[in-house]
């Protein structure tokens, strides 16, 4: 019987060697360990053994069983591993093939730039104010210290609906409407469409967007205007950007300034962006004119404020290196999908 068991061990080892699939392993297991298997048959025959032999043979039989079971597990693992290896091999992809993309759209470049500007100002405690585009002459001009017959009206090339109604030429009327309604402190930006009767060319559009800002509170000073714009410009164009304030004139601010920034492309050395000057004009600003405050019922002995305005198209054209403003309004999808 001992010889039989040893023979089974040898047979099993030899046969297992030949097996290549999990199905065959099962067959093998049944053959050796199943109820009608070879080892079981021997175990059943152990009743005929003497009391001395029985434990010895029994132990041996158990050893053989354990040996075969272990061999099966090991074999299984090997087969599984090699099956997985083969599967993995078969599943090899060309990772340089293009991905399957879900079609998704894009926001207009002006919206993207506006979102950035809004985020910066919201972070500084500004809310976003809106107002009508077809606007009273009073809000667009008169309240802003530009009475009828003021020479500044010529330079604005305004679209008129009638004597008293215009297409707003700036978003400042929104500021006036806010000042009329809301007591200081006021901290708003007013983005939106504005209209000027400029003939269309690569740098002019009769419809364009402005983002104007207004701050009114006790003790607001011109250095606050500079500080606020410095934060804004550095957030938008990077910490290395330098600002230059030049005296200027706007009817609704006093003192007024135009702001240049060091060219974000060349850093001030001079390039095609800045037309060789190293500086790029990006916004106009100033302390709110006392007449404007008075027109809005704000006590100039208590409150002061500043205002600024930036052209959104200009920021977008520079940011994306777009050389023709008309592209923004043509809406060719091959253009839009670049952003």
């Amino acid at each position: 019987m001992k010889e039989q068991l040893n023979q089974i061990r040898l047979d099993a080892t030899a046969q297992l060697e030949e097996i290549k699939s999990l199905d065959k392993i099962e067959e093998f297991r049944v053959k050796f360990l199943g109820k009608k298997g070879e080892l079981t048959a021997i175990m059943k025959g152990m009743g005929g053994l003497s009391a001395e032999e029985r434990p010895i043979v029994g132990q041996l039989a158990n050893e053989v069983r354990t040996f075969i079971e272990k061999a099966i597990e090991e074999k299984k693992e090997i087969i599984e591993k090699s099956a997985m290896a083969e599967k993995i091999k078969a599943e090899k992809l060309d990772v340089t093939m293009p991905g399957k993309r879900k079609n998704h759209g894009t926001l207009h470049p002006l919206t993207k730039v506006l979102n950035d500007l809004e985020d910066i100002f919201m972070g500084m405690g500004f809310t976003i104010a809106e107002g009508p585009e077809v606007e009273l002459d009073y809000y667009n001009f008169e309240a802003l210290n530009i009475p009828k017959d003021h020479p500044a009206r010529d330079t604005q090339d305004t679209f008129y609906i009638n004597d008293d109604v215009v297409l707003r030429s700036q978003t400042s009327p929104v500021q006036v409407r806010v000042m009329e309604k809301q007591a200081p402190p006021i901290r708003i930006i007013s983005p939106g469409r504005v209209y000027r009767s400029d003939a269309v060319d690569a740098t002019h559009s009769p419809v364009f967007h402005q983002v104007e800002g207004l701050v009114i509170d006790k003790g607001i000073k011109m250095s606050d205007l500079k500080g606020t714009l410095e934060v804004f410009v550095k957030k938008l164009y990077g910490d290395d950007t330098k600002l230059r304030f030049r005296p200027h004139h706007f009817p609704f601010t006093e003192p007024s300034a135009e702001v240049d920034i060091s060219c974000f492309n060349c850093g001030g050395k001079g390039c095609r962006f800045c037309k060789g000057e190293g500086w790029i004009e990006i916004l106009g600003c100033g302390m709110v004119h006392p007449k404007v405050l008075k027109n809005c019922g704000i006590d100039t002995d208590v409150y002061s404020g500043f205002a600024f305005g930036i052209g959104l198209e200009r920021v977008a054209l520079f940011r994306y290196d777009i050389d023709d403003i008309r592209l923004l309004y043509e809406n060719d999808t091959r253009f839009l999908e670049q952003f």
């Binding site: 500004f126 000073k221 250095s223 606050d224 934060v231």
Partner: peptide, 11 residues
């Protein structure tokens, strides 16, 4: 350049 040291507003 200074930053407004007035009332905090919630934007």
């Amino acid at each position: 350049t200074t930053l407004m040291d007035t009332a905090v507003t919630c934007g």
